[in-house]
Design a protein around this nucleic acid. Structure first.
Lengths: 279, 279
DNA sequence: AGAATAGTGTCTGTTAGACACTATTAG
DNA sequence: CTAATAGTGTCTAACAGACACTATTCT
């Protein structure tokens, strides 16, 4: 297109960048916060940390922190920053691979960004929030700058007054997680590498808080190619109160569910009658 | 919880904030970019602007800019910043209300944030991207700092090399817009206040690039209560090549579609056969 | 008149949910 | 043995897509 003037353009670009001063504008900060969910003792739980320093000292909040460069001045990308925050609080670093692959199997996805003015009293802060779905992770260890770190049942966490606007972020993250189970195969992210259909069903029941018909659920799962892959193996024992040994499956990669497995909250009436607008 | 020490805590928080220096950290910038879609001349089009200054001088990109405070030092929230960018480039300011309500009816939603290192050569920049769906808007006027502003058919826009990572943002925004038509009533955002079912169907056909069976589509729309509201009025003329006058409808508020109106790209096979994993 | 469009009705194969039923294993 | 669980099969009402059909209006 503009190849004719490309040389001078390139020069101009170089000159511009050499003279650019990033400090000339009003300061804005970016934080990355993570709403990490796991299933512990039959309950959907979220990872919270207790703040040691102001602002909101002593208050609980989602793990997170300022996006900042490493020693060599390089910034991580947003997803890496979120993964680092999570690893720090759970005490599971991805460097210790092999020893525990649970952190490697964590599903991490961006939720949304929050930038309401005065959501942070220090300065204008944009928070990029992530949602993490994880198999049963160990009890977290409080990292530097935090008094404590805990898995809390989501209802309990939502009833607390969290720092900043983290109640809002938590609510949005919960809705995202619940909704995603409907149309993706992400429920497997809550389970160990091998699992049974019953365990998979329990994930849905716990996350949604409603019971599903076992046989219907089983058919729906098998109706989506690539949701689960049979290993050919069986569990060592039958169900808790008896029953045959169940077939073990593995997660079959990311799959979109068609049709979706719907929760009741989503199953809305379809009356099909337009309300007339009186002119 | 910590009411016992709340006074001293409050004092500590005040003291901390008084001494806080926002400039002590490495600078990060936040931009807000908008992928605004509209339907012009039977084609899904996106609003692009041509950059006047480095970096990427002369290149086309999505309208957007740095998140910065106004004269009184106050930052807008992210959605307002996006709306301002859009208003500036379309020449339609929301202050001129009454004269034209089309801008007021624009649907604006957050898409995602982009923070890949070196996506901006000036410094580390996090871009919060928004998607806008708008009824047929006027030809844009180039704002300050831009050489030109145009509506471009999305295929044409996607074939250009846009500045920064805006090709990626555009692709994500397109997929968001196409997907959202499936399970929400947002298609009405592309239409004037009153419209016919055929016009609504054309929106789907244009955005998805596939034909829909008129009678099936009509039933699906009416099957979702609250999608459209009959006004009782009819169009002044029949269809282009003849036909009765169509009933006029208005958008019936935000509705979730159940069942969804699916495009072919989403209709996947459901074979229901697990591939066995060989040990 | 002819063609295109708006809108309704009908037919048929598919599917969802419910539930019966068998087989297997824990206690 | 009894109860609980894994997994399969069957029945039925509802629904999706296809398409026939009528009515209306433009050219």
């Amino acid at each position: 297109m503009n190849t004719a003037s490309s040389r001078t353009e390139a020069e101009r670009e170089r000159e511009f960048l050499a003279n650019y001063d990033p400090h000339q504008y009003a300061p804005v900060a970016v934080t990355v916060d993570v709403a990490a969910f796991t299933i512990r003792e039959g309950t959907l739980s979220v990872l919270l940390v207790q703040r040691a320093a102001p602002p909101y000292a002593n208050a609980w909040c989602l793990p997170g922190g300022f996006l900042s460069p490493d020693q060599s001045g390089r910034f991580p990308d947003l997803a890496s920053a979120a993964a680092m925050r999570l690893a720090k609080e759970t005490g599971l670093t991805s460097e210790v691979a092999g020893a525990d692959d649970r952190l490697a199997r964590v599903h991490l996805e961006q939720l949304a960004s929050y930038g309401t003015p005065r959501r942070d009293p220090r300065m204008h802060v944009i928070s990029v929030a992530y949602v993490a779905l994880a198999p049963d992770l160990p009890e977290p260890v409080a990292g530097e700058g935090t008094l404590a770190a805990r898995w809390l049942p989501v209802e309990e966490a939502a009833s607390l007054t969290l720092a900043f606007d983290h109640n809002q972020i938590l609510a949005d993250a919960l809705e995202r997680a619940r909704g995603k189970l409907e149309y993706t195969s992400l429920a497997t992210a809550f389970l160990p590498k091998e699992f049974t259909i019953s365990q998979l069903r329990k994930v849905y029941e716990i996350v949604w808080g409603e019971d599903l018909t076992p046989s219907v659920f089983r058919r729906k799962v098998h109706a989506t190619a690539g949701f689960v892959l049979a290993t050919g193996q069986h569990t060592a024992h039958g169900g808790a109160g008896g029953g045959p040994r169940a077939v073990l499956y593995r997660a079959g990669g990311q799959a979109l569910l068609h049709p979706a497995i719907e929760r009741e909250a989503t199953t809305v009436r379809r009356l099909g009658i337009d309300e007339a607008v009186s002119s």
